[in-house]
């Protein structure tokens, strides 16, 4: 500031210097905001992972994909028994049959998805042309519609079956969500993040209240699962549902439990939430479909 004053009083052409200064200051501000924006997702992810690894030091980071069973020994044993005859097996079979059955135009899902459907690791992603998040389930329906078939309902049923089959084919692929250098993509990520941490509904809970700061605690007899790895194992067979459900079905269920109005599955905000939450688990394995209580 002092320097500025001296220059201004000493300088021969004050307005020229002023102009240069404004340019410098503007450039600095732009650079800083660019850095703070782009430092976002990466450092968010590191802090998120560290939050859970320090909260549950006995759990190896790669094990968080097993949800509550990664932090609860007694229920893990039961779950491992269940996994010997997994309740989602029927869904995989039905999904496989659907995968192989040609559409009316004689094309199949294989014309939309490469690698025998083992593409779980490519979703969700930011589509720069469409300026929106594309999820696996959205892509499945777009494949159907492009081939003249009716779109499927997103929460359960056939959609969950095909998603289960493709997830099964993709087991072991790494979660590697990319948020590109694009203000629209960043804004989508930020909206998902804000949704995650905001309290909502009459009961006033955020997602993080239960699955972050509350994770590991008991609600009645149920232990709250940690958020790290949360999207890795969907779709899931849930005993409470008595059947399969997609990730967005679970989002809706959580929202209703806190007495908030649920959003539609595959609505923009749920896809952005999926983008954020999956990004938080970058580096872990996809291991769907799963079985949960």
């Amino acid at each position: 500031m002092i320097f500025l004053k001296i220059r201004l009083t000493e300088g021969p052409n004050e307005s020229e210097i002023m102009k240069k200064l404004i340019v410098v200051i503007t450039a600095t501000i732009t650079a800083f905001s660019w850095i703070s924006l782009h430092a976002g997702p990466d450092s968010d992810q590191a802090a998120f992972e560290k939050y859970f690894t320090s909260k549950f030091p006995d759990t190896p980071v790669s094990d968080f994909i097993n949800g509550v069973y990664s932090i609860d020994k007694p229920s893990r044993e039961q779950w491992e028994e269940i996994e010997e005859f997994p309740p989602y097996e029927l869904a995989i079979d039905s999904g496989k049959a659907a995968w192989n059955k040609p559409f009316a135009n004689s094309k199949t899902y294989a014309d939309c998805f490469e690698n025998e459907g083992a593409v779980r690791g490519n979703y969700p992603y930011w589509d720069a042309d469409r300026k929106e998040v594309v999820t696996l389930e959205l892509a499945i329906n777009e494949c159907r519609v492009a081939n003249g078939e009716e779109p499927l309902k997103y929460n359960k049923g056939k959609m969950a079956d095909i998603s289960a089959y493709m997830s099964y084919q993709s087991r072991g692929q790494k979660i590697n969500v990319v948020i590109p250098d694009d203000p629209d993509a960043m804004a989508a990520y930020e909206r998902g993040k804000e949704f995650y941490y905001s309290k909502r509904g009459q009961l006033n809970f955020s997602c993080f209240d239960c699955h972050g700061s509350g994770s590991g605690n008991l609600v009645r007899a149920d232990k709250l699962s940690p958020a790290l790895g949360h999207t890795s194992h969907f779709p899931v067979y849930r005993s409470k549902w008595g059947g399969m459900g997609t990730l967005h079905r679970r989002f809706g269920g959580c929202n209703k439990q806190v007495r908030a109005a649920a959003f539609k599955p595959q609505s923009q905000i749920y896809r952005e939430l999926e983008l954020f939450l999956t990004y938080m688990s970058n580096g872990l394995d996809f291991n769907g479909p799963g079985a949960r209580k």
Partner: peptide, 23 residues
Amino acid sequence: EQSNDAIAQQERESSAWQSRVPK
């Protein structure tokens, strides 16, 4: 009243959620 409360909640949360993000 529920909607009034929900709108007030949004206003409260717009400046409260940031403090919950792990750092």
